[in-house]
């Protein structure tokens, strides 16, 4: 008869795993957004009806992006080990997990960003074109600025998706909450680990959502008067 793991021990492990998870999610979200946003902008610019329509390039780019998105994350983890070794000269640990997490999320962010930018109405974009603005200026002060609230939400969606994917980081010794839940909770039938990680994951996801909602409202300059 095993006695339950003392809460203090659970708590210590939980703290460590939460730190690892937050580290992986935050860093990979930042990298994925930084690299995925230009992909999304490029997709939208080259789209039919975009500012620089290039149908063939757009198709090829879209194909690559969708290929990346359809790749199961577990496969990506394994496939990208050599890239990880190249970049970090190590393939183990939370930092190593950041490479496949970021790379996997780039096409995801690309599509999200493209969809958000496509929502900016064509007559708004054309109005900017007729002012003689450069494409760069239109991207910056029209496309990105007009969709800023939706872009912030897209970052939140990405972070929550990466929170989910980071659970698989255990495969490369990345640790984190998902790994703790699987190793200690599921494989060793330890309910304290299982449920407490679930609670912490839910809290993190909710916090991400609350923060993005708040920031999205903050950057939204539309102020509709209540009539």
């Amino acid at each position: 008869m095993r006695s339950a793991t003392p809460w203090s021990e659970v708590f210590d492990q939980l703290l460590l795993a939460t730190g690892e998870t937050l580290y992986m999610v935050v860093v990979s979200t930042v990298i994925a957004v930084l690299l995925g946003t230009p992909v999304g902008i490029w997709l939208q610019l080259t789209a039919p009806g975009g500012l620089r329509p290039r149908p063939v390039l757009h198709k090829v780019l879209g194909f690559v992006v969708d290929l990346g998105r359809s790749m199961p994350f577990l496969v990506l983890l394994v496939v990208l080990t050599s890239l990880t070794r190249l970049l970090l000269s190590s393939t183990i640990g939370p930092t190593a997990a950041i490479v496949p997490l970021s790379v996997g999320a780039i096409p995801f962010v690309g599509r999200l960003v493209q969809n958000v930018l496509a929502e900016v109405h064509v007559s708004v974009v054309e109005a900017a074109v007729t002012t003689g603005s450069s494409t760069l200026r239109i991207v910056r002060s029209v496309l990105l600025r007009e969709s800023a609230p939706a872009l912030v939400n897209a970052v939140g969606v990405t972070a929550i998706a990466l929170l989910g994917y980071s659970a698989m980081a255990g495969v490369v010794g990345g640790g984190g909450l998902g790994d703790l839940a699987v190793r200690m909770g599921y494989q060793r039938f330890n309910d304290r680990y299982l449920w407490s990680t679930v609670v912490v994951l839910a809290v993190i996801a909710t916090a991400i959502q609350l923060v993005t909602n708040r920031v999205a409202r903050g950057v939204d300059r539309r102020r509709t008067t209540s009539v």
């Binding site: 708004v124 900017a128 200026r137 029209v142």
Partner: peptide, 24 residues
């Protein structure tokens, strides 16, 4: 050009919209 339909930037004030061509 006054394009067909709603063409103002919704994230900018009226003055900010009028300023757009001047920025360019």
């Amino acid at each position: 050009v006054v394009p067909q339909g709603d063409s103002l930037l919704r994230q900018r004030t009226a003055a900010g919209n009028v300023a757009l061509p001047l920025e360019a």
